[in-house]
Nucleic acid binder design. Structure first.
Lengths: 237, 237
DNA sequence: ACAAAAGTGTTGTTACTACACCCATGG
DNA sequence: CCATGGGTGTAGTAACAACACTTTTGT
């Protein structure tokens, strides 16, 4: 293994290196549906198509710091409650003009906050994406799959839910993200048993049409915790 | 969002780009334990430390094709039954001499085959890693976590098990990978119920010490299939 | 016959879903 | 007092773990 690795023991970085982009798939539940933040391209290639927010990596910067910087400076988004790496896309044809890899992150914004974004960016339903640029459409769908998986076996709901919420509200968030009906009754018991949520002790006023006032809950932590690490094949007691 | 994204709409890739490495965390069960393939560095930095196999990306090559090429040409490894992207490491200090990102893949080699690897590479127990170069130690551990997770909710065992196997053999594979005791009895029922494995109809001869001959099984497919996608919060019937 | 290894049957448990029913509020 | 929405109680169930027991081989 002569001139191998990491990090290539070769001491000259042989080939012309590709450039490296950083992208963010930002999700938020709005109007009862899962939406993602896209930006409308003003020039070729893919003029008029919608693309993910992002940019390029600066020296001495990690990928994660980079995407946070781009989100803060370009779309003025600072309320990302959870951020995780999704993957790196490398198809040589993914950018028509340049050899460019891109590492995508999944970012989640809690319900209810409305970051002021630039005029050429907007929120789009993930179920009805507009025409997207590059491979960004499939990156968004990969993000949705990741979100759906983790919602069920972790406390990741904290990143889409507001600070405090009623169970009906939380159910709506889960339904929007998962794409199927969720029972508030059972959702409550699952999350309580796991210790993911707790009652705040306060209640919400009932609506104009009456009804029993709902209890307000909150997530016990706003850090990702895997609540059900061994769905099956669990270790012996 | 003027000179944004994808991949940066900016038309000149501004900064000095980092170089990009590709690495493989290759696992195989050998001698009843989970082992990984490492290569002993012959020069600085990290001379004498052990590092992952890999190399750099060639033009017009995807990351996946690249790591397959490096594994085939550098360690003569062509029997990877499963390969998936683990993530991209980007800490600016990860390489002492150069700014280099690395995308790592998880590769799994079935039990029983013994690829002939170069003299300066060897298999090491993941539980007792030697001194590793760069951030490769933590990359190996990240690979093990990924493996452990997927083993329990998917059919990923196919990539560590031989073509056909008895349940005792399969249990040993799972124990090595998971790091805790597994019951052959229950493992059989779990995997049969899910349709992950099936009997071949043949039996193994019993050992010199006697004992009932074991039935031989095989995995129904050798492609990753998520058998238990909704561990909890499953969709309504 | 006996030890060894593999396989089956059975019981208990957990963590869910589904659904009926009860509670608190506004009009 | 009744409609509306929230909450609780209870039964049913799927998917496990644990363990006793049976089967099939070699010596």
């Amino acid at each position: 293994m002569s001139e191998c690795t990491t990090t290539a023991s070769a001491d000259q970085p042989s080939a012309p290196a590709p450039s490296h982009g950083v992208l963010a798939v930002v999700f938020q539940v709005r109007d009862g549906e899962l939406q993602t933040l896209l930006w409308e391209r003003g020039r070729e290639p893919y003029r008029g198509a919608w693309s993910l927010a992002g940019g390029s990596l600066a020296p001495d910067e990690t990928l994660e710091a980079s995407i946070l910087r781009h989100l803060a400076t370009k779309v003025d988004l600072r309320d990302v409650a959870h951020l995780e790496q999704l993957g790196t896309w490398s198809d040589p044809g993914r950018h028509p003009e340049r050899w460019e890899l891109a590492t995508a992150y999944l970012g989640l914004v809690p319900l209810g906050i409305d970051p002021r974004v630039p005029p050429d960016t907007g929120w789009h339903s993930v179920d009805e994406l507009p025409v997207t640029a590059f491979d960004h459409g499939s990156i968004v769908l990969a993000g949705r799959e990741r979100l759906r998986g983790k919602l069920s076996y972790s406390n990741l709901g904290f990143a889409l839910a507001p600070e405090t919420f009623t169970l009906a509200e939380l159910r709506d968030v889960y339904e929007a993200a998962l794409g199927y009906d969720v029972s508030a009754t059972n959702l409550k018991r699952v999350l309580l048993r796991r210790g993911a949520i707790e009652p705040t002790g306060k209640r919400r006023a009932s609506g104009p049409t009456g009804g029993r006032p709902a209890e307000a809950f909150r997530f016990r932590t706003r850090q990702l915790e895997v609540t059900d690490p061994f769905a099956v094949l669990r270790p012996p007691a």
